[in-house]
Write a protein that binds this DNA or RNA. Sequence first.
RNA 1: GCGCCUGUAGCUCAGCUGGAUAGAGCAACGGACUUCUAAUCCGUAGGUUGCAGGUUCGAGUCCUGCCAGGCGCGCCA
Length: 554
Amino acid sequence: MKKTLTELISDSIRRCMDKGLLGSREIPPLVLESPKEKSHGDYATNIAMVMAAREGKPSQEVARIILSRLEDEDGVIERTEIGGPGFINFYLKEKVWYSILEEIERRGEDFGKGKIGEGRRVQVEFISANPTGPLHVGHGRGAAIGDALAKILEACNYRVFREYYINDVGSQMNILGESILLRYLHGLGKVVEFPDYCYQGDYIVEIAKKAISERGDEYLHYSKEEAIRSLASFGASNILRGIQGDLDQFGVHFDGWFSEKELYQEKKVKRAIETLKKRGLAYEKDGALWLKTSPYGDEKDRVLVKDNGETTYFASDVAYHKDKFDRGFEVLINIWGADHHGYVPRMKASLMAMGKDEAVLKIVLVQLVSLMRDGKPIAMSTRAGEFTTLRNVVEEVGRDAARFFFLMRRPDSQLDFDLELAKRQSNENPVYYVQYAHARICSIIREALNKGIVLPKFGDIDCHLLNLPEELDLLKLLTAYPEVIEASALSLEPHRIPFYLMELSSIFHSYYNRYRVISSELELTKARLFFVGTIKEVIKSALNILGISAPEKM
RNA sequence: GCGCCUGUAGCUCAGCUGGAUAGAGCAACGGACUUCUAAUCCGUAGGUUGCAGGUUCGAGUCCUGCCAGGCGCGCCA
């Protein structure tokens, strides 16, 4: 609807310019908003005020000129007015809102989907936690956001590929191997010291036990280096399986798992470095090889190959991102923990060094999660790490509540996650509030069927019976649903959808308490029954995008 | 020291990319179940948008400087 109206207005402005009524040549970006105040119409635009300065005329007059050439062929506009400092307010005819009901029926599960993606291939890389331990709540937030964004983009006609980058190379792998080896030796009765820098969690002990039961004392015959390397790889694959299990339980599935180790095995890091050298963007200094990132906005150049011949983590990342492009992705979205934000400029710079536009890489920074219980923070030490795993949280509060809580806030604001609140089945908990609205509608429909009422189609109802203020508000919200999805996709902000759901549910609950859907008046019953059915569909669709279930009974 | 993020009601947070009188939920108080699910609803109260300037018709939103909190500034990953 917004789109239709926007076109009407810009057509009008164009006509005014053609006839010389307006002096400007270009139409500034047209902003159409739904005013909070109902007395300001269904939609309002500030275009006259924006143009006023350029035109050298008072904004009210500009507004009058624009309105004078407005041609509403389809007859969607009830009336217009010029308000306040020069807003143009539009009041639409009721029939406009009813048309959404027909659209929801016609498009079914596709309602809400848009096409701004134009089939572009986008890769969403998220979580990408090192395989050195189980996922914690912070990863959970990244997982929920990454997965929801992927679904949002899919709904906007992007072709989405979800990928997990496995950081299975480097010093943390050595530490993993060493940690397991020490537990392994201890398990075989050797006396060992367990240093602070090693991974402390009990899962390391479990992996060591597993190594013992599967391989016996085999590793005792290896050299220390050999044993560490072998146990690191044994441990990493075990931990990775655990991570996959955790994600499965959380309902997150990847299209691809990309191993850093394979990046090296396939010589992709070396080749990426060669490419950069050829472009004259890598140079040697102090025995190391540097990438010129500073010309592209980074504060200094970065090392690709250390003076000892080893490549840096940055080098693999450069190669990894080059590989993403080589695989044909047009847009890259990385979900990162906010503690990596210092890394953003150099990553973007490296893309520019490869001749890419930095805008094709979008990095969503996700802030920390503070776990709480009844308003009190839970200590997050590595030592007491057990309770902060994603698995434990999901087991305690459930998948739906966990997802909703993770998605409720803007990614870049810190999140307080209260376990007791997430479990509580009461009005303090927004998850159930939304799901309950869905279940209630299902219940109404069940009741109607019990009474032998045939579920109506759009063609069977008289929409004009739906003229209560609550009904019109709900219709307007349903109309806005596709716009919410699109805005989430453009801003990469999934939290807009939980907020939309809470608002929709709120008006529905209020409507439910005040009026009856099933009554003795058959025509009214039919109209309302169809109407609440469309609300149910939209709630279900939105929950589905968030990866949350829409129960029919609660 | 430099950089990034955050600062909005007692608490947790929105605020549609600069719009009209800043909004929700929770907590508090008072009400509503013989009617499609009370995991709900209705009402009351709650604000110097961290502080000070600036930009303009108009600022929670943009620019500058402070203050507070978090994070980052490696030839670690």
